[in-house]
Design a protein around this nucleic acid. Sequence first.
DNA 1: GAACACATAATTGTATACAATACAAGTTTT
DNA 2: AAAACTTGTATTGTATACAATTATGTGTTC
Lengths: 232, 232
Amino acid sequence: MTRTKLSAPSQAATSDSIAQALSLAIHEHRISPGTKLVEDELAEIYGVSRTVIRASLHSLSHIQLVEIRRNKGASVASPSLVEAHEVFEARELLEPRTAHCAAERTTSTDIAKLERHIDDEHAALEAADPGRALYLSGLFHNEIARIAGQATIAGFIETLVARSSLIIALYWRRESALCEKHAHHALVQALADKNGKLAEELMRSHLVDLHSALDLRERNGRALSLKDALLQ
Amino acid sequence: MTRTKLSAPSQAATSDSIAQALSLAIHEHRISPGTKLVEDELAEIYGVSRTVIRASLHSLSHIQLVEIRRNKGASVASPSLVEAHEVFEARELLEPRTAHCAAERTTSTDIAKLERHIDDEHAALEAADPGRALYLSGLFHNEIARIAGQATIAGFIETLVARSSLIIALYWRRESALCEKHAHHALVQALADKNGKLAEELMRSHLVDLHSALDLRERNGRALSLKDALLQ
DNA sequence: GAACACATAATTGTATACAATACAAGTTTT
DNA sequence: AAAACTTGTATTGTATACAATTATGTGTTC
């Protein structure tokens, strides 16, 4: 429940910290796909000049969380259905193998950390904060990639997870993320048992499950004002 | 000190075009890993302000072709041995599967394009321009990823290929890239025959071959001045 | 000669000013 | 009225000025 400080920062906001704040807000669905991100507006919100906002936005555009069109400015990315499928197919290619590697290298500290993630996620759900739960569920996947110790692939997975958040905002069908709780739990168990084969299979089916829960129904469009979304 | 204040572009240099020019120079080993990239210097070379150079450098840092350290500036990235192995392991995970997909979607136009790539590469080798040959050989891999039609994964592969170029500059053991010629030819043939299984296997062994040609011997250090390297 | 302190230069970080472009609304023309 | 043009405003693109930080060189001390 410790909402990380991401609002008007007491200390100097750097380009990276702003990018992270924006990324979090997008992850948590406080700003929705397609939202226009005006430089002046953000500059005022974060109390910095457009220069540093610009850098942040470019940063986010590189991981395709925001889309920048020349002379048109930046908006939160709004992945097409094709892109959505691509992202999940890429995850299905990368993550099972990564989970396998992770199983062979997991320490007890890692397990504890993963279990805390699950607890936090559960707590967020109970607190009726589905955005945060989704964010934490993403962290869970990133954490596994980190454990596997392949920084390069972990980086790819991180961007895929981030984009998944956009995709879920746009194309999600089912109601709850409760289904995930069991999947994540089972995965942690497999990792703890150092059962690579099982971890790989669980991850694969988990992703297939997520993927199949997407639907054509588009545009889940309630949008907060930027100020309300960012300065909470 | 021939101060030709114009670079390659006679037309207005944009942030993207400069990033591409730098990327090409790095690909072709005209600037070597570790080279310091001073903003003022580049600004003068390309006839733009530091603002746009900055954007270019940040762009390249996102794909890990250059490394930016706060208050220290940018240099051409210099991947460690661990990173080198990671990059190739990632390629071994992604590219064979991608080649398989590509085989199922290859058109005759694609084949023609790939064959032209090989010819160009060969020509570059004969012209004693190994840098360019290496660049073209990278393009070959990118092209296959593009054919496979998974833009997301193709993007990943593109960054991996780019980083491979740095790695080859640092850790390459064997003399020639001739071994590649046959490998690439065989791959094209498999694609033309729409033999996915074979394409996958050929790609895998090709990458393993490349990977095993790396060595611990570091720092292949002849460095041109930036001006000489960029204003060709 | 090595280690340190300090001044100076080089370089990056950030804010701001201005130019270029896109957007919206109103006006004219047909 | 619809299309084309005009004007005004909002927004982005780029250059520049200045502040903050790091690198460099010089002299002093031991």
